[in-house]
Simulated scan of single mutants.
Amino acid sequence: MLRFFFWALLIINAILLSFNFGLFDNMFENTREPLRMKAEKNPDKIKLLNANEAQDLIDAQTKKAEPILACLEVSGFTAAEGKSFDEKLKPLALAERLTRTELAEVATNMVYLPSLGSKDAAEKKAAQLRKLGVTEFYIVQDQTPLRWGISLGVFKTPEAAKTHLANLAKKGLKEAKLAPRSVSAAKINYRLENLNEEEKQAIIQIKSAFPQIQSQACKSSSE
């Protein structure tokens, strides 16, 4: 029995001594090494984010997914132009995103055709204007020397009136004249908010049919 205990203690001491000298390290190396190599090849998969980094990542992804919205102001329409613009906007179904305002504006420069002498002559001339593609005009009927003449537009500045006069000449209407005349005219302005890129481009295309109209970017009321 004593001999048995002697050899048992001797074997246990030998095993402990082998561990101390690392004689058994190679037995576990084959299992540890693949795990170490996998971690080195995929460091991003084991990187831990703190709370702030995780929130920043979520915010960045959310911001990237949100569409960029635009705001446009389109201004300077006459009543007739505004009505036409309204019809062209209907397919976009902008609803509460569209604000339409009407302002009284005093214009002092008038492009016109002198009196044609009678209502019939003025209406005949009006039909000729439509054939030339001129649609913005009205027959003057007040008791002035211009009665039965035709107003082709009133403008705040002489430069704008001259530009309109030149455009009419290009269409073949060369007898139009320019004169000072104070007229209070309603101008219609539009504010269009929260437009996606497709809607914005559609409005720009519609606006191109009104060369005298100005447009500019604006800030949405929700910003």
Results as ranks from 00 to 15, higher is better:
144 T>L: 03
174 K>D: 08
213 I>V: 15
73 E>G: 04
20 N>H: 13
182 S>T: 14
88 K>F: 01
171 K>L: 15
81 E>K: 01
192 L>I: 15
1 M>R: 12
118 S>N: 02
9 L>V: 13
37 M>Q: 15
131 K>V: 12
170 K>M: 06
9 L>E: 09
175 E>W: 05
179 A>N: 11
59 D>T: 06
146 L>M: 12
186 A>D: 07
101 T>A: 06
54 A>G: 12
216 Q>A: 12
128 Q>M: 07
149 G>Q: 03
6 F>E: 10
112 Y>T: 02
170 K>I: 07
92 L>C: 03
158 P>E: 10
60 A>L: 08
184 S>C: 05
184 S>E: 15
192 L>Q: 10
54 A>W: 04
130 R>G: 00
32 R>C: 02
23 L>F: 14
4 F>K: 09
193 E>S: 05
202 A>T: 07
168 L>R: 00
142 D>I: 04
216 Q>L: 13
175 E>V: 08
92 L>N: 03
16 L>V: 11
111 V>F: 00
25 D>I: 07
150 I>Y: 03
95 A>H: 02
123 E>G: 01
153 G>F: 03
52 N>H: 14
52 N>L: 13
18 S>D: 04
68 I>Q: 14
120 D>G: 06
174 K>S: 12
175 E>F: 05
74 V>Y: 00
97 R>M: 08
193 E>L: 02
31 T>A: 13
82 G>W: 00
140 V>T: 01
136 E>D: 15
176 A>D: 06
58 I>T: 11
166 A>L: 11
207 K>F: 07
123 E>T: 04
187 K>E: 10
44 D>P: 00
45 K>G: 14
200 K>R: 15
184 S>N: 15
95 A>S: 09
186 A>V: 09
182 S>Y: 08
199 E>S: 01
85 F>V: 08
35 L>T: 10
26 N>A: 05
89 L>R: 02
70 A>L: 05
168 L>Y: 01
21 F>Q: 15
23 L>N: 11
160 A>L: 05
206 I>W: 09
63 K>I: 10
212 Q>K: 15
82 G>S: 13
214 Q>Y: 11
20 N>V: 08
118 S>A: 06
